[in-house]
Amino acid sequence: MVNEVLFWIVAFLTVIPSLALLFAKRPVHIAMSIVTVMVGLAAAYVGLGAPFLGVVQIVVYTGAVMMMFLFVLMLVGVDQREDLKETIKGQKWIGFAGSIGLAILLIAVIGKVTMEPRITGVEGNPEEIALQLFSEYVLVMEVLGFLLITAAVGALVLTHVPRLTPRRTQVELAEARVLAGANPVNKPMPGVYARHNALDVPALDPEGNVIEDSVSRVLEIRHQTQDGAEFRAHLENPEQKGGDDK
């Protein structure tokens, strides 16, 4: 039976990735697993005769909500690995026990219930849902609209950082820099003119010494810069063939 097969597929597609919530270490992996769960659930909805919800599930959850999660994850630092070692005494075991107890309890209750499945073949096609939404549930729809606007404004308020000092203009910034004794002219660009102008190669002064400032500090920290020695050697010994001199 197609439905049976579908159910088992969905079951594996949801339960296995959702376990990542408990055991995975990298938040990005978890988020991707949840995306999988959402897609599985969307398949389940379609299988249960609710194609509209299936589509909405994909669009809202997979497309919007989970992407927002990922976005926030990037914002707060994707590297925030979590140590799974529990810090609160007893939290782990009581938490597991409580969750498993809840699952057992729910399954036991559901198993006890015998219901007459009345499969009337009602398909949750978008038209019927739309009719219901905008007739019987129109008030709820409007209230939900308010809720969404409120949530949007709330998010704006929560993430807004009020400016405490007046904004400094570019002129003021430049003056301040000169006052502080900085070099008024531009820093030298990276790269060796006519030979190698990649960003990771420091510029050389007329005497052939490396100008440290010409390379982005980030690259330096990542040890992704070249020291330019081979090009200097090439300058000193024109006979030798350069690496990229093809």
């Binding site: 609160i88 009581i94 107890g101 809840l102 209750v109």
Partner: peptide, 24 residues
Amino acid sequence: QNGQVRSYALTMLVGVVVIALVIV
């Protein structure tokens, strides 16, 4: 009142389980 949000959540869950158990 240990200030740990997760402990509060745990307490809630345990409470839910207990109440559900009583009802069942």
